[in-house]
Design a protein around this nucleic acid. Structure first.
Lengths: 221, 221
DNA sequence: GTCTATACGGTGATAGAC
DNA sequence: GTCTATCACCGTATAGAC
């Protein structure tokens, strides 16, 4: 058998492995969202993935490890999204803030399914600090990045100006709050409504720079 | 046996019943917070309450019913708090908004234990719509009350004025976001820090009425 | 790698004494 | 009302064939 064929097999094998793991993680998110965290079992995940329970354990070692990898995947997916958005953005601070906010409401992370999974993990954080360890650093880096941009905003002459760190907390805090409402309201928002509210909020917080926000609004909402 | 004694016994019996139920509900909150929603069993709740599993089932019928009553208690406790605070507040809209915001960070509802329980239930909402039914109306009423107060704010001459409904969403949304950070941040806020941030946020959203907010700040933070 | 079959402990709920 | 004892079931994880 020629070497090329072997290498191809090898590559496709490991690609298959990553693919399988990803497939199982997706099934775990689906299960958590569909039947809840408490009722998510190896059986529900296996059924969702269309494979056997034994295969789950083979790939992840244990249910707990699978859950942790699932959270890690959610966290990494979110990080990738905002970092890529920021990389594509221009140098203007307001535009960069808008890009970060818009990434919070990207369908890839802001679906009822994903939010339900996030909420479930957060509800367990106090009992399982490991969950916090998995995404804590990434959360810190995201907030730090936002705060740094906020600090770079040109100073204004308003007497009630707020510092960049606080501004970042306001922006991120509202995103979290709106995110929650996409999931749990009695008449939940859709992503567009949530994003539009987040941008209107930005306009209030950074009134001197209204125009770039308006530009983004038409692009994303 | 005199009638008075019978009535007393009856009264104390039913008082004892309510007391027991409350005691069990507190144990459920403790268990959810301590071991997580997924690992909360009749055994963990019974142990936390210092009674037998059979007693739990006797008082609530089933584990599921106990969980639903627990959520109902959390929801009612929160409603009582903001309604009482509002009843004690004066007529000034800004003061009333401040009172509502401050009630969000009252130790009675804003402890890491309670927030962990809330988050756990919210994470299950998509899978168990019953949970939403239990607290949905109360949530709606609270947001409606806040929005009504916001609409009653005197109109300003600023060209970027926001309507009352939107203002209410901004205020409530940030409370939710900060609330979450009291629980899950890598260096979580304490209540005072969260409340202070919420008030600073108010100052930005309602800059024309800064002074009453300052007053409340010194009272509550 | 994936499956079926299975071990084994824990889970929600019940029975029945007190 | 509260307990202990118990049950039938379901949970995770393993064994071993393919």
């Amino acid at each position: 058998m020629p070497r090329a064929a072997v290498q191809t097999r090898t590559r496709s094998r490991s690609a298959g492995r990553a693919f399988r793991r990803r497939q199982i993680i997706d099934a775990a998110v689906n299960s958590i969202s569909r039947v809840g965290f408490a009722d998510t079992t190896l059986a529900t995940v296996a059924k969702e993935a269309g494979i056997s329970q034994a295969s789950l354990v083979f790939h992840f070692g244990s249910k707990q490890a699978l859950l942790e990898e699932t959270l890690r995947h959610l966290s990494e997916e979110y990080e990738q999204l905002w970092r890529q958005a920021l990389a594509r953005a221009g140098p203007d601070p307001v535009s960069r803030i808008c890009v970060l906010v818009a990434s919070d409401f990207n369908p890839k992370v802001c679906s009822r399914k994903k939010i339900a999974a996030w909420q479930a993990f957060w509800g367990e954080v106090k009992a399982r600090p490991t969950y916090l360890r998995i995404c804590g650093n990434r959360d810190d880096e995201r907030l730090a990045a936002l705060a740094e941009i906020c600090r770079s905003l040109p100073a204004t002459d308003r007497d009630d100006a707020i510092d960049g760190d606080t501004l970042a907390l306001f922006i991120d805090g509202l995103s979290d709050g709106l995110w929650q409402r996409v999931l749990v309201g009695s008449r939940p928002f859709n992503r567009q409504q949530a994003l539009e509210l987040a941008f209107r909020h930005l306009k209030v917080l950074i009134p001197e720079h209204r125009e770039p926000i308006g530009i983004f609004e038409t692009n994303h909402s």
